[in-house]
Design a protein around this nucleic acid. Structure first.
Lengths: 136, 136
DNA sequence: GTAGAAGTTCGAGCGCACTCGAAGTCAAGC
DNA sequence: GCTTGACTTCGAGTGCGCTCGAACTTCTAC
């Protein structure tokens, strides 16, 4: 588990090198260890933290709030109830969004059904497709 | 089913007046009928179209592609197979995103579980909470 | 008829989350 | 030792989807 170069960290996490540096600048990541040359060396723990940041982003948390979450984390274990409260909000929002997505998917299905019916109807009324190339 | 003012159309659809005009400018909406005064009058069909645009947005379709979709719609029924293809792409993407969301939700649950365990553990080891206000 | 709310067009501005490019330093292979 | 490519910092730029404000007109209620 040797530390990774920024290129390896990017490959490992799917977060671009630019974004890794951006997150560090913004304080979402700690100051990453540097080799004597000044090049970044990502520890396994750093990688894990990047993955957690990805999770927070994926739940819909904006960078701004991720910063406050990171601050809570740095402040110590007594902020855990606050952190739970934050995560619960995004948990609930995610559940809501998933329900909405199911609804959107159903509407999309209905629309597709309508379109498919039109195409199907056209196929059994050959006079309409004169001049159009066959799809079979 | 009288035509609606822009204020009513905004209230009805949840799309802001600014955005309704923006969509019209961008060609996502037809030229909305105008009263002799120049004020917009949204027909029921216009409102329905706004709702369809909202669905497309909700599936993750960017404005840019919505424009091409609208163009297909204007081009006539022979573009229906193309429209089906477009909608199927967003359908698939939505299904994928929902699966990812389930995974994210599960990870969030695990994280919350860890946090809750820490809090629970602290509650049965009173010496750690000396000086901290009780939450009961 | 007048006040105030609501409408119009137009271009500019904003917030977000990156993303890029310049200018310079460092590392690995030959 | 030199080339090639990856790394560094820094500030600036980008793309998206709105969102706003100014300057003006029109409608509504009294």
């Amino acid at each position: 588990m040797d530390p990774l170069t920024i290129d390896q960290a990017a490959a490992e996490t799917g977060v671009s090198k630019h974004t890794l540096r951006y997150y560090e600048r913004e304080g979402l990541l700690p100051q990453i260890d540097k080799a004597p040359s000044g090049h970044r060396r990502y520890s396994p723990g750093d990688i894990e933290w990047v993955r957690f940041l990805q999770l927070l982003r994926a739940t819909g948390m904006p960078i701004r709030e991720m910063k406050t979450f990171v601050a809570l984390t740095h402040a110590g274990d007594h902020t855990i109830p606050d952190r739970i409260a934050v995560l619960e909000r995004y948990h609930a929002a995610l559940v809501t969004r998933m329900a909405e997505d199911r609804e959107h998917l159903a509407r999309l299905d209905r629309k597709l059904g309508i379109y498919r019916d039109i195409v199907a109807t056209r196929e059994v009324t050959p006079e309409h497709i004169i001049g159009e190339p066959s799809r079979t």
